[in-house]
Amino acid sequence: MRDEQGGPVLSVRDLRVAFRTPRGLARVVNGLSYDVEPGRTLAIVGESGSGKSVGALALLGLLPGDVARISGSAVFDGYELIGRDEEEMRAVRGAGVGMVFQDPATSLNPVLTVGRQLVEALRAHASMPKDVARARAEELLAEVGIPDPRSRLEAYPHQLSGGMRQRVMIAIALAGQPRVLIADEATTALDVTVQAQILDLLMRLQKEHSTGVIWITHDLGVVAGIADHVLVMYAGRCVEEGSVDALFERPVHPYTRGLLGATPVVDDPRPARERDLLVTMPGLPPDPVELPEGCAFYPRCPVRADVRCRTEEPPLASVAGDPGHRAATFYTPEGV
């Protein structure tokens, strides 16, 4: 980690989220801890149902309070977020922590112009006269690379392409000058050339504002390109974390290794018929209502190296000789 003044802007410790369901308690996030440093990007990687999005929504108080049980701690800038009421959270969201979600088509209000939505976001965080807010909205659109920003203020979301809508979402997220930005599958719905534009934009803005970014995704390629630190989630737990290099070059956990092996690459020069089959992990992630005893990955694990795997939950432990790299497995791969 680079030496920034002061350390992390957001510290999450032992975050747990469970939902009451008719079938029983669904334990979706089971003890998650991480730090977000200013100007750095933490990538949280996982497949559907791994708890990666729920963990972020919990921080922001965006889960339905009547069914979600949240415990643990999340300290943002010295301020505990867990257990706050709606009004207190509203002050944090946007101004402290901004969000960009996957689908810009559904996160924007279809019947309001882009300008109106931006002005609302701006005035929610700071009292300013309408015309000042409007000028600032125009600046924000220009900052996120929207051509002809003044006339775009009058546009409705459906008049914009997917990439442009996602730029507007980013502009809205930046309106409150957040110190932490949570991007939840923010480029998943976009084409790769548009994704490249948005990634470029976000990395530039992050550098300019020294924003701490939590990038939630299933796409290991994107992670390799933008993350400083990576956390891999499975069944609501962190199974491995480390610097982006440690994770991709020296993965330890069988799940991480499986994910990397399952990802096709462009730059293997062999023709398709001479390539190896992709690595597959049989089966599915466990049901959060009936988490298995022992390691949650045990039922799908190709290694099962230790007698304890079935009965004991492997703790998240440091990988020998690799500072900052931790994995929750009893297995030590060869050559590591």
Binding site: V192, T193, L220, A224, G225, F248, V265, D267
Partner: peptide, 9 residues
Amino acid sequence: AVPAPSPRK
């Protein structure tokens, strides 16, 4: 534009 799952690349 296709991201490669390798930080080095």
